[in-house]
Amino acid sequence: MTAPNSSARNDLRAVATPLVQIAKEPYYHATGDELEVFAAAAASGLPVMLKGPTGCGKTRFVEHMAWRLKRPLVTVACHDDLTTSDLVGRYLIVGDETVWMDGPLTAAVRGGAICYLDEIVEARKDTTVVIHPLTDSRRALPVEKRGEYIEAPPDFMLVISYNPGYQSVLKEMKPSTRQRFVALDFDYPQAEVEAGIVAHEGGVDADTATKLVRLGTLTRKLKGAGLDEGAGTRLLVHAAQLIAKGMAPVTACTAAIARPLADEPDTRHALDDLIAAVF
């Protein structure tokens, strides 16, 4: 096998996993001791598991911590077709050559980055097993296809997240996986805190943010009664951003909150009524 030519090198660069160093502080409002716990886990080389409903700030928290710890961040959105090769890497045919391409997990291990596997339970179970050696005292990643054994540098950190609320029984995380992590519970922030987040992120005034949070709180009560999940903070921020662009609040909330949440007619209408009632 020879080194790839310049054209092939360009192709490789296009598909290589970037190690992003976050330059600007991502806004995050701590609601407990999660900053301290995460920092201590990072200093001890322990992996972290984030649990909480969708849109409550898990991803933002990881971005914030990556910035705070000054480590690159590699994020992988897990799905049920995610294979071990997708994470670890594979041989690719580039031009007339076969070259090895690191997957995001391998790239993160080599680069001493934080690797964030979002919604880990969506991935196939055999895929999640590949992270086991990285989450115990070995802190290493075996790359079987290359016969390589990569020891993780001290800065490497594995973070996974999942939402215990709406995952099916079939997608429960195996105890052999979950008992390797330091866990942090996330939930929607207190109303005042959440209103501050929505106002900051959405660019709306405090009154509008408060109404949006009130609406979000109402929709969360429909969990299990028409909705799998209520509106997360992220949806509220989306609605706020539309409102900040001049859209009428009812229209913005319908588009950014009600329609993404529900398809069933009665639930959609109930959400419409709640929006009209709050605004």
């Binding site: 109402l218 009560k221 429909l222 009664a225 009665d266 209408h269 109930a270 419409d272 009524d273 009632a277």
Partner: peptide
Amino acid sequence: EGRLAGFLHAL
């Protein structure tokens, strides 16, 4: 009835 039930449930 369906939409009202949802509306009230949220309150």
